[in-house]
Amino acid sequence: MLDLDLPRFPLGDYIDCGIDTLREAIAAETSAVADFVNSGITSVVDFLVFFPSWVMMLLIAALAWWITKRLRFTIFTFLGLYLLFNFDLWVATMQTIALVSISTLVAITLGIPLGILAALSTTSRKIIWPILDFMQTLPPFVYLIPAIPFFGLGYTSAMFSTVIFAMPPGIRLTTLGIEQVPKELNEAADAFGSTKMQKLIKLQLPLAAPSIRAGVNQTILLSLSMVVIAAMIGARGLGGVVWEAIQRLQPGKGFEAGIGIVIVAIILDRLVGHVKKSQT
């Protein structure tokens, strides 16, 4: 019907061309970043597996007890980790914990300041908000594509995509938390002569804390939900095992690693949930 004989619009070609140009322009920087992140994550993993696994199990369980003071959770942590060891997934588990923790950390250290910025300045909010909308409607696979040309296969691309994917709720919930501070309280802070910084630190952030805390938890869960996808571009860990199992049609093995991801998710979620709660 619409046979108007117009030439096909070569959007894909343009994007390829743009990425190529950009990649060449900043090749030195990106490979430096990639090396840095790769070696960073690798050394964290090395550190985690340096200890005998039973020592790590006890250490993590002790941490669980120290933070939550819940016996049931402590036992769950220990048994869960033991199960993973028993499945022969110990190294993969440590790799996943390292990747998720570091990605979460990066997502939060970028996300919270961006959230604050969006809350305090309408202009930056007008820029940040649509980008977030856009990011959240894209399927996570799409983030993998630009990461690879810049950072190659491996932890860095995995972390890059994970951070992008996991960051939006942290930004949004920080902004919302600050915006929820009642008007009268903001007025009071101003009326007593607070500077903007004092108002932020003494009023807005403390009152936004529950919301920011929820953002952090969401960030962790989203990071974890990326581990299988990230495995497709070379992140190892439990996700890597699942991805391998899919390719080799080994449902049993895939299932074991899947349980592993759930166990790690529960442990990290509870630990962080409690750390944040006990701070206030």
Partner: peptide
């Protein structure tokens, strides 16, 4: 302030 505006 009317609604006290204290820091909770």
């Amino acid at each position: 302030f009317q609604h006290f505006a204290l820091l909770p």
